[in-house]
Design a protein around this nucleic acid. Structure first.
Length: 494
RNA sequence: GCCCCCAUCGUCUAGAGGACCAGGACACAGGCCUUUCAAGCCUGGUACAGGGGUUCGAAUCCCCUUGGGGGCACCA
């Protein structure tokens, strides 16, 4: 089995592309076949220099390694279409010679005007009128002699229908007259997708084409091309599109707002930057349109490889289940070894806290804090806001937060002072702090929650924070006492 | 507008004629636990789009309707 992922370097690697790549990769790994990466860089007007690197980085990040393609090479190269122009021209000439293709001299302006006219007249079929298909030899010679720019078009059959099969769907025959002669080679000499794709898939001996559903309606063109070229037709499987979270519209078509008020992330790099784990993304991508089993959503790469099969893919387009990704990412974060999590957190913390990675890695508070926030994280970028209190000199917070619910400022102050006095003598360990502080609350006639709440604000400046004792231990006795003192001042000023 | 694809809880899905008064997960609601927030555990509600067939029997097959999606470029 030979499958391929054929992105065009016109933008960053998209979530939907990643899912397509994943299914291709899974199929190759499941069958022991080859996964090929081919770069379809035939549109020099939309070319984006960064995007090749982004595509490769994203695939690497997801763990989708390719057996042939950029960097690794392979026996069917080159793997950039821009380096295969001679091959396309050779076959275009053959089609021309066989009368299966023809040169078209129509200008883009004429084509545009034609479509506009057709739309105005509400014609059912919009597209090229095959004006140049019937040019006489003399006319052609004149046009060529005048140096008129031309494209090469494929001469689609004028009647009849084209049948093909798809592994996931029941396809009705398509009427050939529904199609207008497509361009094979553009006037700049570059091939169009349809042409380059067919040629490359053939010469790279691709056996299965797994690609997005948006290609389904162009299959008849491809089939006719394969036939004209006399080549064997590969197996098709058109993957369901991922719709935006609301379930309306193709995800790639628009950048919409997500469930909350946040921007909907559409590129793999954005998910990486937002603190999603590659393990979680891999798993998440796989459950959109495919299921490991009837009662499991969580599975490893190896498990997915073992079970994956094209025919099990659900053909129905579906909305992007973002809340499931959140949950799944949290799950994978929780399953990490704390040291591993800390290492992954470092770049995120460095960025937000404005400190060098090395300094953070050596910081004694981090190994204490990381296990405490591990089960509280949905994404890695949330960590900083949970533990920043341990990395800043002074806390900023509303003094009113120091007044415990049900207590007066004076009562809160008294409790805090007593706690601070006690803290000065206690060993800074979980066991050392726990019982004495609870007893103190009892002695004072305040609820444990009230006392701990006051301390939490004094220590972290927040009402929601990691567990109190761990936070104090991470801070250290000296800073803990200083912050209590500062909080007492604030309470007195109320 | 024309052509094509698709259709199970709010969402992602399991289901390939009887094992389904439809299973799992997320989300949601309630409860437990609890120093906040989480996590964890328990409980709960909600779905076969509608209508016709075929069949002893249909979520599963066929048709129509409706709904959603995609395509109709010198973009891929």
């Amino acid at each position: 089995m030979r499958v391929r992922m054929a992105p065009s370097p016109t933008g960053y690697f998209h979530l939907g592309s990643a899912r397509t790549a994943l299914f291709n990769w899974l199929y190759a790994r499941h069958t022991g076949g080859k996964f090929i990466l081919r770069i379809e860089d035939t549109d020099r007007t939309r070319y984006m220099p960064d995007s090749l690197q982004d595509i490769m980085d994203s695939l690497h990040w997801l763990g989708l390694d390719w057996d042939e393609g950029p960097v690794v090479g392979g026996p069917y190269g080159p793997y950039f279409q821009s380096e295969r122009l001679a091959l396309y021209h050779e076959w275009a000439e053959r089609l021309l010679a066989a009368g299966l293709a023809y040169r078209c001299y129509c200008t883009e302006a004429r084509l545009e005007a034609l479509r506009e006219e057709q739309r105005a007249r509400k014609e059912p079929i919009i597209g090229y009128d095959r004006h140049c298909r019937t040019l006489t030899a003399v006319q052609r010679a004149e046009l060529a002699a005048a140096g008129a720019a031309s494209v090469i078009r494929f001469a689609m059959p004028l009647e009849g229908e084209t049948c093909f099969t798809d592994l996931l769907r029941k396809i009705k025959p398509f009427d050939n007259n529904q199609y207008r002669d497509p361009i094979l080679v553009k006037s700049d000499g570059f091939p169009t997708y349809h042409f380059a794709n067919v040629i490359d898939d053939h010469f790279m001996e691709i056996t299965h084409i797994l690609r997005g559903d948006e290609w389904l309606s162009s299959v008849p063109l491809h089939v006719n091309l394969y036939n004209a070229l006399g080549w064997e037709i590969p197996v098709f499987a058109h993957l369901p599109l991922i719709l935006d979270p609301g379930g309306v519209g193709k995800l790639s078509k628009r950048k919409k707002k997500g469930e909350g008020d946040e921007d909907l992330l559409t590129y793999i790099r954005e998910y990486r930057e937002a603190g999603y784990l590659p393990e979680a993304m891999f798993n998440f991508l796989a459950i959109m349109g495919w299921a490991y089993s009837a009662d499991t959503d969580l599975f490893s790469r190896a498990q997915a490889i073992a079970r994956f099969d094209i025919v099990d893919i659900n053909p129905a387009a579906g909305a992007l289940p973002l809340s499931k990704l959140q949950w799944m990412n949290g799950h994978y974060i929780r399953s990490l070894a704390p040291a591993d999590l800390m290492e992954r957190l470092l770049p995120f913390l460095a960025k937000t806290l404005g400190q060098p990675v090395e300094a953070l890695r050596a910081h004694p508070a981090l190994p204490v804090l990381v296990p405490l926030i591990q089960e509280r994280l949905k994404t890695l970028d949330e960590a900083a806001s949970l533990i920043d209190f341990a990395f800043v000199e002074a806390l900023e917070y509303d003094p009113q937060m120091l007044v415990a619910k049900g207590l007066t400022p004076a009562q809160s102050l008294a409790a805090l002072t007593a706690a601070r006095t006690l803290l000065a003598t206690l060993p800074f360990t979980e066991e050392g702090l726990d019982a004495p502080l609870r007893n103190l609350a009892d002695q004072f006639g305040v609820k444990v929650g009230q006392l701990f709440g006051i301390l939490r604000v004094a220590i972290t400046g927040k009402q929601v924070a990691p567990p109190l004792f761990g936070s104090m231990i991470a801070l250290g006795r000296e800073k803990t006492l200083a912050r209590c003192l500062r909080a007492e001042e604030l309470l007195r000023s109320l």
